[in-house]
Design a protein around this nucleic acid. Structure first.
Lengths: 339, 339
DNA sequence: GTGAAAGCGCTAACAA
DNA sequence: TTGTTAGCGCTTTCAC
């Protein structure tokens, strides 16, 4: 059990018979230090294996060089890619990324946000839970001008930067696509109205129906939580209607996959009997048979740009630029399930 | 642009005409404080919206309540699940999780590990990159008795806790499975020998061949980096051999998927012409047609247990228990690609 | 049960 | 160009 004592700038200072502040300056490449001392100090630091105590530096400088991230679930591909994008950019700027997941529970989200706040993250990137109907925890940030940015799922009541895709247009497009392939009775399995993304997708769907003169039949709009349990049930309800739909726009790919499996089990041909589409382009969507039509969202890009935006705000605290809503393009991916 | 000044224990102390240390104690439920003052302080803290500065507390107490995580890529399902498991457990114990990804590059891994070290993480959970042939950066931790734990991919030269699956046995089992379904000429697309996981899978494969009296034909063992580019090439080489294999154990599911696509394109029937298996049970593996036989690894479990183990070490620094190698069970998943 | 004081390791204003 | 000094906000002895 050997235990190395950590080297501090004071140790270096003693060794070299100079002051700690000189060491500090030399180490941070401060301009008003002679090239000679700078080299000597850096050499010594290397020799003794000095590692700065970032905690102390942060306390002193009142910044943590850290951004906090809260997402519903880390293991969902969309969020994992976004985090990957955040981390990649943050790393180039020397920022750490603390992540936490709300598991789509408001209580856990609140707790995570509080923790990140207490840890003095310099900025916060979040995508809210399915239950989030309160914004107090996020006000902690916005009220103190600590940069806060939502991506994908946002709190409408909080004024801050947002990076989203146009769910309304995407919902409109994918519904139009179903219409253009000849579907006349199109249903939609929607997610919780509380979340902007599901609300927008649904409204895009409704608008497309109305633009093309198609009716919204009774029971054709199912609001669910889009879980592995809810989805199939909703689809079952749809297909059990007196006149079942000939096209279903599912609120996400997981639900579309469940629908696909339901069809296989019940000898329904996709897309002949019922055309299906999802949303998100999960990794499985391209390889399932029939492959799943869907909307691709640029998860990595959203994360990367979120990090860019927030770090830019952090580094320019006086930025008076109004909050931005950045809308990234989606891509309609037409595959066999609706071809 | 309003700007709230942060409340400190001193502010609370002033307001209440007591000392800062009393406030500190009251807030941390110290035993030698009267119930009355404790309540008063906590009430006031709530009232003024006091949020502890964790940075300062950490500096003082020399712990950060943070664990660092480095994985090759955050957006790979296995790692995302592991991180999810880590976060879930860490949260119950009040620990933060700083993540970073090496992108399978040694240089980035070194940099991430250094950063985490400088941030004084209390413990470190890592899964090494494909290039990691040097352990100096990890010694930073092991030499100082800062808990370090590898999961899945480890540095063999570093003595510390490990959580792994039995890749040797899993490789053996999946090869045996191919043999038992009648394959006589079984090839393997392996990953870099440098990583324990690929080496073990390969050796399990070789052992199974030898146990069942099957030969290893020339060119039947392909070592690649298992990328989306390498995998198909290796599979193409295999199928172009004078006598191509009738069963291929691919080092991971992605490569198996590529192989599957190659077969479709070249009118090879799976599993009739060639049986295929992967490794990892990615989300797409169960839904692709034909569904992919594979080995399921408990990613979430590994992460969860990794967090348990490391936090236990952190909280019991004097723990003289020898380092453990925890081996979690895998599950052979037989599906259509080899049935 | 409470307070005074020291200090975690670093940075930065001010002096020299 | 370098040193001195004073904290950042908190915890924790050591007194009382």
């Amino acid at each position: 059990m050997k235990k190395k004592q950590e080297i501090t700038i004071h140790n270096l200072a003693n060794e070299l018979n100079i002051s700690a502040s000189t060491v500090s300056r030399a180490l941070s490449d401060n301009s008003r230090i002679s090239k000679k001392t700078r080299l000597i100090v850096q050499q010594k630091a290397l020799e003794l294996g000095y590692r700065p105590n970032v905690l102390a530096a942060n306390l002193r400088s009142k910044k943590s060089n850290t951004i906090g991230v809260v997402v519903p679930r880390i293991d969902r591909y969309f969020f994992a890619s976004a985090i990957s994008g955040i981390e990649d950019y943050a790393w180039t700027k020397g920022f750490n990324v603390i992540i936490s997941q709300s598991n789509d529970l408001l209580a856990k989200e609140v707790s995570c946000v509080h923790t990140l706040f207490s840890n003095r993250v310099d900025g916060m990137i979040a995508s809210i839970s399915m239950q989030t109907n309160d914004d107090k925890h996020f006000r902690l940030f916005s009220e103190r001008n600590i940069p806060l940015l939502f991506f994908d799922r946002f709190c409408p009541s909080i004024d801050c930067d947002r990076i989203v895709v146009d769910d309304y247009e995407s919902g409109y497009n994918i519904t139009s696509h179903l219409i253009s392939r000849g579907c006349k009775r199109i249903a939609h399995i929607a997610g919780p109205e509380l979340l902007n993304i599901y609300k927008d997708r649904k409204e895009g769907y409704l608008k497309a129906l109305s633009d093309f003169g198609l009716p919204l039949y009774d029971g054709y709009l199912q609001e669910t939580r889009l879980t592995k349990e809810d989805g199939p049930q909703a689809f079952h309800r749809l297909m059990s209607l007196p006149v079942p739909p000939d096209g279903v726009f599912c609120g996400n790919d997981t639900t579309a996959l469940c629908a696909l499996e339901y069809c296989k089990k019940n000898n329904l041909k996709v897309p002949q009997d019922v055309a299906l589409t999802g949303f998100s382009d999960e990794p499985f969507s391209s390889v399932v048979t029939p492959s799943l039509s869907t909307v691709r969202q640029p998860g990595y890009q959203m994360g990367f740009q979120a990090a860019q935006k927030i770090i830019h705000r952090i580094e320019n605290a006086n930025l008076t630029v109004l909050f931005e809503k950045i809308v990234l393009p989606t891509q309609l991916i037409v595959r066999d399930s609706s071809r």
